Amino acid sequence: MTDVYAFPVLVDCWERLQPWAVARVRLRGAAAPRSVVVKWVETGSAEARTASWRLHNEYAALQFLGDVAGGGLTPRVLAADFAAGLLVLEDLAPRVALDQLLRRDGAATHRERLAAFAHARGELSAATAGQAATYYARRAELGPIDPAADRAGRLARSRDGAVQHAVALGVPLAGRAAAELAAVLDELYEPGPFLALSNGDAEANNILLHASGPADARLIDFEFAGYAHALADAVCLYIPCPAWITVGNPTATGLAGHYRRALVRGIPEAADDRRYGFGLAPACMSWALVRLQRFTLLDTRSPGDDSRLQLIETLEAAARTAQYHRTLPHLTTWVGRIATLLRRRWPDSDQDLTDPARFPPYRARH
């Protein structure tokens, strides 16, 4: 074990936090915390999270963030036993996941929590920009990793699958739009000063905060941690993730400003509108292309399926973001044509997704 408790501990009881390989464990002992969170590597199931590198990533990222961010952004690592596939973390209760609050009460009730979410995403990138070598040196101590190859593979897959679906829909990629897509991939693969640590899943389910009073937010779930374009972590403010149909206009709600002000503290280049826009628009376009790979699956579903609405909004929100920042005009037109064709192909999904009365920010996908 590493970072072992310096006090005797007895397990009182535990509860699994479904559906993940995570449990809250109640402890007994004079100096022990009341509870901890334990993550483990599962075995014996086709769906099990069996890759030990997940725990290696989480451990390295949380330890690294404890050094560079002072421990105010994430839970503390209390113990680790990689041979047994166990990681023990600080329990952040009574904080709850932001997505639970949004589903229960709606976004209008939790504007301050959403602002804390946006700020925390920007703060994470600001605190870690320019320190990739330090992080990967720590991570390499736990096992081999090739961050450049991994990033290139993800980007290539997002491009190739989406282009194939576009061809099937009768919207082949060519000319200036193809050149702009190449520029998108170049920007994301070589982000320059925007290279920062991400947990790999920058969504509202991966931030815990207090339901009332000061949010005191903490980011969680760093199993897929790695360095990437910082503005990829802002995409969740502009484009719906798998949980939502819509997320609203982050500029109008102020979330974009909260995020960007936090980011500028560590990445001054984010204050430049042109540079910022040409980082954000490619990040949004890339995510839209990743989601377009679900076209074949969604095309088999019954009329009225929320996932169809979500895909259309994902494409159109990416196009709106690029238009707002006055960049990628030809790629924006291409993506818009795909969305228009999907509206015709799925008449049940030809709806005004910008109508806040019917589709308020953070309307959940069912």
Results as ranks from 00 to 15, higher is better:
residue 1 M to A: 13
residue 1 M to H: 11
residue 1 M to F: 09
residue 4 V to N: 11
residue 9 V to P: 02
residue 14 W to I: 03
residue 16 R to F: 05
residue 16 R to Y: 07
residue 17 L to M: 14
residue 19 P to N: 09
residue 22 V to C: 12
residue 27 L to V: 08
residue 32 A to F: 05
residue 32 A to I: 06
residue 33 P to I: 08
residue 38 V to R: 02
residue 46 A to C: 09
residue 46 A to L: 12
residue 50 T to F: 10
residue 51 A to Q: 14
residue 53 W to S: 14
residue 53 W to I: 05
residue 54 R to Y: 12
residue 56 H to K: 12
residue 57 N to D: 09
residue 58 E to Y: 00
residue 61 A to F: 01
residue 63 Q to M: 00
residue 72 G to F: 02
residue 80 A to C: 12
residue 85 G to I: 12
residue 86 L to D: 00
residue 92 L to V: 13
residue 93 A to Q: 15
residue 95 R to L: 09
residue 97 A to V: 03
residue 101 L to E: 07
residue 106 G to D: 07
residue 109 T to K: 11
residue 109 T to C: 08
residue 114 L to N: 06
residue 119 H to Q: 14
residue 119 H to T: 15
residue 120 A to N: 03
residue 128 T to A: 01
residue 134 T to P: 01
residue 134 T to M: 03
residue 135 Y to S: 01
residue 136 Y to A: 02
residue 138 R to C: 00
residue 139 R to G: 00
residue 140 A to S: 15
residue 147 P to K: 02
residue 149 A to V: 09
residue 151 R to D: 10
residue 152 A to H: 09
residue 153 G to Q: 05
residue 163 V to F: 03
residue 168 A to V: 02
residue 172 P to C: 04
residue 174 A to W: 06
residue 176 R to G: 10
residue 180 E to W: 02
residue 182 A to P: 04
residue 188 L to F: 05
residue 192 G to D: 07
residue 196 A to K: 00
residue 197 L to I: 04
residue 200 G to Y: 01
residue 200 G to K: 03
residue 201 D to F: 11
residue 202 A to R: 00
residue 204 A to C: 12
residue 209 L to M: 14
residue 211 A to L: 06
residue 214 P to T: 07
residue 214 P to D: 06
residue 218 R to E: 08
residue 222 F to V: 02
residue 223 E to I: 01
residue 230 A to W: 00
residue 232 A to H: 10
residue 233 D to C: 02
residue 238 Y to F: 15
residue 239 I to K: 12
residue 240 P to G: 11
residue 245 I to K: 09
residue 246 T to P: 04
residue 247 V to Y: 07
residue 248 G to E: 04
residue 256 A to T: 06
residue 256 A to D: 14
residue 257 G to V: 06
residue 262 A to M: 00
residue 264 V to K: 06
residue 265 R to S: 10
residue 266 G to K: 02
residue 266 G to N: 00
residue 267 I to Y: 01
residue 269 E to W: 06
residue 271 A to W: 02
residue 271 A to Y: 01
residue 271 A to L: 00
residue 275 R to T: 14
residue 285 M to H: 15
residue 297 L to T: 15
residue 299 D to V: 04
residue 304 G to N: 09
residue 306 D to R: 08
residue 307 S to L: 12
residue 308 R to K: 13
residue 311 L to Y: 11
residue 312 I to A: 08
residue 322 A to E: 03
residue 325 H to C: 05
residue 326 R to F: 10
residue 327 T to M: 04
residue 331 L to A: 15
residue 332 T to G: 11
residue 334 W to S: 02
residue 341 L to E: 03
residue 341 L to T: 03
residue 343 R to V: 05
residue 344 R to F: 11
residue 347 P to T: 05
residue 349 S to P: 07
residue 350 D to M: 09
residue 350 D to Y: 07
residue 353 L to W: 07
residue 353 L to I: 07
residue 354 T to Q: 13
residue 357 A to M: 09
residue 359 F to Y: 15
residue 360 P to R: 03
residue 363 R to D: 08
